[in-house]
Every structure is written in C-alpha cells, then in structure tokens.
Design a protein around this nucleic acid. Sequence first.
DNA 1: ACCCAGGCATTGG
DNA 2: CCAATGCATGGG
Length: 268
Amino acid sequence: MAFLEPPQPFDFALTTERFRAFGPDRVNAWEDGTLHRVVAGREVRIAVAPGGVDVEPLDAETGPAVVRLLGGPFDLDGFYAWAAGDATLAPVTRRLAGFRPPLSLDPFEALVGAILAQQVSLFSARAIGNRMIERFGERRGAAWAFPTRERLAAARQEELLAVGLSRAKADYVVGLARADLDLARLAALPDDEVKARLTALRGIGEWTADWFLARHLARPHAWPWGDLALRKAVATFYGDVDVRDAGARFHPFQNLTAHYLLTASRVP
DNA sequence: ACCCAGGCATTGG
DNA sequence: CCAATGCATGGG
C-alpha cells in the first residue's frame, strides 16, 4: 500500500460517510473499512492511514482521481475562516472538521446517478442504481465500473424497467447517453452555461444540474436550493427562511455550506 | 394498505 | 408566473 496525503485538513471517516449512509454502493464499495473504486478500468483500494490514506495501486492515474474522490479540490481553510463569522455554521465546521465532500469522478455517472435520485428516497435510488450497475456495468474485484455511456445508449427501455427505473427515467437515461453533448467539455464552462446546456436535455432540471455543479465540478457557488433534504437542513439550522434566497448569505461557499448542513443533519 | 422520499415533464390556468 | 398530476421503488 502506498501513502497518499490529500489536502489538509482531512478526515477519512467523515469524508467517506456518504458512501455508507444509504445502503451498499456497488461503485464506491465499502468493505472492511476500505473503499473500493474502479479508476480507468482498474480496482483501487483506499484505506485510512495516519495523516492521509493508503492507496493501492497508486500511480499518476489513480492518485489524482483518489484526491478528487475524497474532495481534494475544496478550499476548507477558506471555508472555515469564513464560517467562523456565522454563529450557526461555526460550530458545525468545528464538529465536522476535515470533512471533504466526495466528488463524482465521471460526468455521465454523476448525471445518471442524480436522475435515479430524483423524487425517490436515496435508499430507493441506491437499490435501483445497484441493480442497473450489476446489469450494465463490469465488476472489478469488490467494486463495479459504472455502466459506460455507450452501453446505456444501447440499452432497451424494457431492460431498464426490469431493474426498477420508471419509464420516464429510462427515457431520460438513454436520451442523455445518446445526446449530442460532450460532457467532459462542460468543465470549461461557467456555472450558468453548464446549467443551460444540461437543462436543455429532457429529464434534467435545475436540481439535477445544481448537484452536477456541486458534486462533479466542485463549483464553490453551486446551491441546490430545490433539494428536499437541504431544505430540511436549512430549516433545522436557520428556521423558516427562503432557501433559494439564503444562498446569497453563504456566498462564496454555497457548495460547502450545503454539504456541511446536510452532513451535520445526518451525523450525530 | 397506506405514506413519504435529496424531481421532472406535461397540462391548464 | 403558479397549481395539479403521474411516476416506480424502498422503508417505515
């Protein structure tokens, strides 16, 4: 096992909590305290180590991917300094010190995962997603590679219904897979342009686009104000406020604020 | 048997 | 701009 130090501060248990919170995850598989994840076709194992993580195999391809997976790009120091001025957020950041919101490594995976999570509970979405991954993805050790865009572009609606998608979501997923849109190039565009390109697709609304900005592109200002769980979390911490407007209060750390409020409402 | 859960498109005001 | 409606599944 090779040692890798993500940006500090860093807390492995808090950062990986999301991979365990909603039932088993075939793509980010948790087994015996180790996170298993397929990167570029190979299984990578990630375990806690003093001051960082042990990664196997660690090379020029897996290292940067693992850092992103563990939320490396987020500016926690800046966030904590800013949050110290907010009487509600300050204790939350102290309690969750070192929590880095995990990032989706692949844009197609991020969008399909968000589509599956629309409207239903995350436990339900996870169960359906796991069945979809087992049918259309490929196993590599303890983890599964998420189904490729090409594979889902060729999927028949009936196959997707069989793993539990609604007819509408089956159409959304196949439509996205077949769409004439280079998902990797979205990373070069500003937030509102990314949202415009994505919401032009059937089945992708503002909520889905906001989570794509937040969890795949790590955009600091992403604020998924329509999210039901975020609405509850904001109500818990700030009372009866307009969640959409409240985003301005958290500028320029809306994304980290959303993740910290959500995790704080989940983790004792 | 209900009811709700980290939405969206469609239809009709 | 806003309200109502159907959607498929998992967990309580």
